[in-house]
Computed example of a mutant assay.
Amino acid sequence: MRSRSVLAVSAALAALTLALAPAASARGNYLAYASKTKLSNGNLFTQITPQYDGTGYWRMEEWYEKTGGGTINQKLGFNYHGYSYANGWIVQTSGTSRMQSFHDLGFTDCSDVVGWMEVDGQGTYYNAPVGIC
């Protein structure tokens, strides 16, 4: 009888822990409001944060830490509500970190943002979704 009650309590605690655990993709898979994807020659990061200027908008930074391989020509951007946003092409060498910032976007809702990096001649690499809420 005692072992059944211990098992029942353990099962109840496990269910409660799962019910209270936040979904990783709601905030990011790396830190609050940030995601990280490991690629063969580096790490791609996407981070969104509120702007503290009274607008209620948020801003986004995306960066790639290149740890190996040859020089690439890349562009960082993100998808939000079915639209893509990006800045210009960047040349990046091994051992460097390159960042693109997106400010005053006018976005205030809780929809997910998916960061990406397009590498000329190689394709596009996507990060895990990030949400502000």
Rank of each mutant, 00 (worst) to 15 (best):
M1R: 11
M1D: 15
S3T: 07
S3P: 07
S3R: 11
R4I: 10
S5W: 08
V6I: 15
L7Y: 14
A8T: 10
A8F: 11
A8D: 07
S10I: 11
S10P: 04
A11H: 13
A11M: 14
A12V: 15
A12R: 13
L16Y: 11
T17K: 09
L18V: 06
L20N: 07
P22I: 02
R27P: 00
R27A: 12
R27M: 01
G28V: 02
Y30W: 06
A32V: 12
Y33Q: 11
Y33S: 10
A34V: 07
S35G: 04
K36P: 01
K36I: 00
T37W: 06
K38D: 15
K38V: 13
S40H: 13
N41E: 13
N41D: 12
G42C: 10
N43F: 15
L44V: 01
L44Y: 04
F45M: 05
I48R: 04
I48E: 11
T49N: 01
T49D: 02
T49Y: 14
P50R: 00
Q51W: 03
Q51V: 10
Y52G: 10
D53F: 11
G54R: 09
G54W: 10
T55D: 09
G56S: 08
G56M: 11
G56Y: 05
W58F: 15
R59F: 05
R59Y: 09
E61N: 07
W63M: 04
E65I: 08
K66P: 15
K66S: 11
K66I: 08
G68W: 06
G69H: 14
G70F: 01
T71G: 00
T71N: 04
I72R: 08
N73A: 02
N73F: 00
N73T: 03
N73P: 00
Q74C: 11
K75M: 14
L76G: 07
N79A: 13
N79M: 12
Y80M: 00
H81M: 06
S84C: 08
Y85N: 10
A86T: 12
G88R: 07
W89G: 00
W89N: 01
V91A: 12
Q92V: 06
S94F: 13
G95V: 06
G95P: 08
S97M: 14
R98Q: 08
Q100E: 04
Q100D: 09
Q100W: 04
Q100N: 09
F102N: 02
L105R: 14
L105V: 12
L105N: 15
G106Q: 07
G106H: 07
G106W: 06
T108V: 14
D109I: 14
C110S: 15
D112F: 09
V113L: 04
V114E: 07
V114D: 01
G115D: 02
M117L: 14
M117I: 15
V119A: 11
V119D: 09
G121F: 04
G121I: 00
G123L: 02
Y126E: 05
N127G: 12
N127Q: 09
N127L: 08
A128F: 09
V130T: 06
I132M: 10
C133L: 05
C133Y: 05
